[in-house]
Design a protein around this nucleic acid. Structure first.
Lengths: 337, 337
DNA sequence: TTGTAGGCGTTATCAA
DNA sequence: TTGATAACGCCTACAA
């Protein structure tokens, strides 16, 4: 293994000079800098991570805590995880993957051991048991998702309320009067997952303003469950012409059901999905959808932790505005039924 | 921050004793062990990761290199990543997430810096440019996926050939004679992704043995692309009664198309999917499917690296046998058409 | 602009 | 069974 000292000898300088060339923390004459850099690449030197962490009091690692349970759409979690990793590299940081099966203890472990300089929590619940650990340990952290009490915490999340409202607006603008909202399974709402509630509330509030008549139906995301929800919607409010779906698993079934019951999309019924673009593009017809910027979520989370690590900037809550993309699944409400 | 020395003072022993209590590398009297453990928990001591790595020449971290491109079904990647993380913890190891946007250099970096003691490569291609780095650096590694030349490498993968063969057998057993295989997009085959080729070959070989007439149609996994493939299958071989799908995106569309064209599953047509259980269960009817054990893949990969790190066990190739689960989408071939 | 030297917290060797 | 103590490789005041 090549060490700083060997590079120094090779370049004919002291090891501190090599260290400073690498860190850039003091000015170096052009000549020696070049000799040092030459030596570094000649010998194939890579600074030892352990030694650096020990001496520098900074591991240059952040921990990303991912949930085991996965009712949130998995590809999005992955996209966020990758965005976090890529963004962290920009800061010279690496990302340690922590699963929640260790519970809050995992967070304590990586923070207390100095393994990680900071922590990013994914899929944060309203009353998340990892948060007390952060507070007592004074761990640098950023949360993806909004807990009950955000005081002193750096958080970033989609603006789900805005997303819900955008769906209501879009359908109202198109002249729909009766709209159904097909949501997540009841357990998601019971767990008070913030995103589900906030979307629904945003939708309901805006729907009320716009004078829409709405129906909310939870759904498991399977075909059978979707069929059940669909049947009850038609039974309760046959004049429904607009559908908002927030359950990825329910999209395919819903489109099938509309087709099977002789409803053409978008002539007879309009469908707005709350889902990633990649999904929206995959169906036929391609779906008008409200999408939150997953990649940005990860990037912002990294920015937040890094700021806390590097200069202890005070915490803040950031909500990212979703985007409604009009595709082929929505159109003007049918004139008559 | 609590250090070993502080624990030692608190317990009235030397710091080396504390170290040995923790590592268990030499016998300690019951009495001192208890005092030390008491001190550890009283003070809330956590060994410093950097110091441990430096002194012990082992970071207790393995790197997991995930692809950015993601034509492999993402939830499975995530399942493997989580399985790897959980399995690594059993060995007292943590997992560092590396994306492939750094290219092979990322592997070099984490290995050369001693950041990671070993590396797990996901989604290995036949001719993977990360492999030369492993070879020249002598990095401890395990590959998920089979490269061209596996010599000296520890690899684990699904037995895709067996999976393909199982599909052929199942449909042949049910009396089907004309079977179509809906695969991945042409680019996947052009890239010579091993899994796509091996599945197809396994299917074709067994189909030949069993006297099946087969048709292979690549597919992008969108509705339109699936519709195109489906139409060509019916045009070329209208008597087709069995379908094997290896493209997750094509499953939903295929079922829709069968329904739309008046074919009842499984009375008129049988469908076997090569996909994870969670997907197979989601459709209606629930799908007979051949599934590879994703979680085991991750676990075995960890076992392989750990063995190489801890006792340099020679490399080996492990193929995991998939499982065919019969559900509601396959039945006896229709007697006549 | 560059060099010297002490220390970071653990591990492991050598004694006792 | 336990205790000193010398590495481990890098960072960073402090000197020059």
């Amino acid at each position: 293994m090549v060490t700083l000292a060997e590079v120094a000898k090779c370049a004919g300088v002291s090891s501190s000079t090599v260290s400073y060339v690498i860190s850039g923390k003091r000015s170096i004459s052009e000549a020696t800098r070049r000799r040092v850099e030459q030596a570094i690449s000649d010998l194939g030197y890579h600074p030892n991570a352990g030694a650096r962490a020990l001496a520098g009091k900074r591991s240059h690692i952040i921990a990303l805590v991912v949930p085991l349970r996965t009712d949130v759409y998995v590809p999005i979690m992955m996209e966020i995880a990758i965005a976090v990793t890529v963004a962290a590299r920009q800061y010279g940081y690496d990302v340690l993957l922590i699963t929640n099966d260790e519970g809050p203890e995992g967070v304590r472990r990586v923070a207390a051991s100095g393994l990680a300089d900071g922590v990013i929590l994914m899929d944060v619940e309203l009353d998340d048991d990892r948060i007390p650990v952060l507070r007592t340990q004074g761990t640098h952290a950023a949360l993806i998702g909004l807990p009950d009490d955000t005081s002193g915490l750096a958080c970033v999340d989609h603006d789900f309320a805005a997303a819900g409202a955008m769906c209501a607006d879009h359908l109202a603008d198109l002249g729909h009067r009766d709209v159904a909202f097909i949501g997540y399974s009841p357990v998601v709402y019971q767990r008070h997952a913030g995103y589900a509630e906030r979307t629904l509330t945003g939708f309901q509030d805006r729907a009320a303003e716009r004078g829409l008549r709405i129906l909310h139906r939870p759904c498991e995301g399977t075909y059978d469950s979707t069929a059940g929800a669909f049947a009850r919607i038609l039974a309760d409010r046959p004049e429904t012409t607009g559908f908002v779906v927030q359950n990825e698993g329910a999209i395919g079934p819903l489109l099938s059901l509309l087709r099977t019951t002789g409803r053409i999309v978008p002539e007879d019924a309009s469908v707005v999905a709350l889902c990633p673009e990649s999904l929206a593009e995959q169906y036929s017809p391609r779906l008008t959808a409200v999408t939150g910027p997953a990649e940005e979520l990860g990037r912002v989370a990294v920015d937040l932790v890094m700021r806390r690590i590097e200069d202890g900037t005070p915490a803040e809550v950031t909500l990212l505005t979703p985007v409604l993309t009009t595709r082929e699944s929505t159109g003007p409400a049918p004139r008559t039924r």
